[in-house]
Amino acid sequence: MLRLPEFSFVAARDIGEACALLAEAPKSTRLLAGGTDLLPNMKRRHQHAQRLVGLRAVANMRGIHGDSEMRVGAMTTLSTITRDAKLQRHWPGFVRAVQSISSPVLRTTGTIGGNLCLDTRCNYYNQSEEWRQAIGGCMKEAGDICWVAPSSPRCWAISASDSAPLLCAIGARVRLVSVRGERVIPVEQLFVDDGIVWLGKSDDEVLTEVLLPPVENTKATYWKLRRRGSIDFPVLGVGAALRMGAHGEVTHARIFLGAVSSAPLRAPESEAALLGQQLTEATVKAAGEAARGVAHALDNTDFTMLWRRQMTAVWVEGALRELGGLPPRAQMPETPLGAPAMSV
């Protein structure tokens, strides 16, 4: 049986205590939220900690609050989010993104904060200790080489969060608290495009909540590409948020791609192709095509990199068709979940 390494465990009772415990030894302490990413990583010995600080008992990090500007506690489980009627009404695209994360039996434990802080992933990295020894390690952990691109000076592990591209697209923010104080930053600033140092938060900061903007007339959606109908991480995610003017012209567009870079990747060319335009067959196609060049899909997930890059255009177009109320393309399943084989 794969087992965890030794560590000590402390359950924090409130945010202040969590921050204080973390501040004692920020490098060797890790926060335990749902544990569905951290614990497998620790079992495979590629994340390490001498002490885990459990956040389960921190009451004011759970739950969904507010009306026009909703706040979601970082410890809110993914399944709580998918069941929340108000979120379903206001941000169905967010609920859809969360519902696409892994599997139902994992979403009961996994949290939204955990999904945002998800370690970057790579087929050379998410392996057992023995496997990584057999390739001599990789840059993200114990080696010098990024096997995805051996001459590259950087690590190309990918951001595999499903919620991040959507939250970036709608302009959500996160609250970070530490013994030094607290700050609220846009979700996209939480990420750094680097496979090794992928979070723009300090080691001593606790992500306590996600702040959703007022919906106003924003329409947002998330399209996920993965092999199976469940369990799988995204090999491509598209978070798109649009606002339309009186004549159906796009006045605001934010499109973020997931799983093609070490951070959610903005697709400004696609956004530019839409601004001022109505959503028509031609404009959504153009915006999709514009995304193709943005994605740097590499050989670090399921599927081939060339095909993933080609699919970026199809998936961006699919998301925009949905937002624009255009008929789905032939054979494209309308519902993003539950479709057999590859689902969007």
Partner: peptide, 25 residues
């Protein structure tokens, strides 16, 4: 033991969880 198969599912306060990914403490 990595949360990938579902074989260890038990109920915790009525909700199905993967026992391999939950600390007993």
């Amino acid at each position: 033991e990595l949360g990938e198969c579902g074989a260890c599912t038990v109920l915790l306060d009525g909700e199905p969880v993967l026992a391999c990914l939950v600390l007993a403490v």
